[in-house]
Design a protein around this nucleic acid. Structure first.
Lengths: 117, 117
DNA sequence: TACCAGTAGTCTGCGATACTATCTACTGGT
DNA sequence: ACCAGTAGATAGTATCGCAGACTACTGGTA
């Protein structure tokens, strides 16, 4: 994917992970897999783990250590009330920005000389 | 605006400014004003200037110094071919991400117990 | 004259974030 | 004994937007 993506994910990836946790609790490795399943295939595991620790420190998720038959124990993350509030704010911010960007794109498509390809 | 916005703007603000320049050439101060007119009222001037210098260094905009009747000369930025290519890539990245986030939001609204308020 | 507001642009330092790369720990298969 | 897969952590790097201060120029006004 383009380098643009890396910067664009800043701020949005957090919301994406919160939304995934809102679907159902999950552990890091699983979240990475779900992200890939949703088309976000270029997100690195290390990034997800760091993000989860951030959420934990902020108290937006509850953590439970669950033994695994394969490999070390899993840390299962569950979205709590604070996390849900934060997620709701995320959606507000995102739709706010999204609308404005969409508006710009309409202008863009309305003057064909702006397109080169 | 929420702190979420600051991070969300990373990567997108650049595309937004490119899109504004694609509408018509402009100088820094004017771009800030246009941003405010489009609802992006919290973007700091210093940020816009830094962004413009970045675009110039990458060769995505052409610059022309134009004397002003009021204050120091203006630096008028015009989107060039490279900039337009970059803008197009921006749109692609943005719609890619946008679609995936939108999909997550649909799941979110489909299980009302996920909403607290 | 001396000061201030408005226009236009620049710069330093900071905090947040995603990526790269590497590491530990555990299991099962060869 | 070794490797692949699962699961998690971390040090270092680069980018980017923001806060805040600064220069430069013009016109008005006390």
């Amino acid at each position: 994917m383009a380098k643009q993506m890396t910067e664009m994910l800043k701020g949005t990836l957090e919301g994406i992970v919160l939304a995934i946790l809102d679907e159902s609790p999950a552990y890091g490795y699983e979240i990475t897999a779900r992200l890939r399943g949703k088309g976000l295939s270029d997100i690195v595991e290390g990034t997800v783990y760091a993000l989860l620790i951030r959420l934990e420190k902020r108290g937006q998720v509850d953590v439970e250590k669950v033994p695994s038959e394969k490999g070390p124990p899993r840390k299962v993350y569950t979205l709590n009330a604070m996390g849900r509030d934060y997620l709701e704010e995320f959606w507000k911010s995102w739709f706010f920005l999204s609308e404005r960007i969409e508006a710009l794109h309409k202008n863009y498509t309305n003057h064909p000389e702006g397109k080169s390809s």
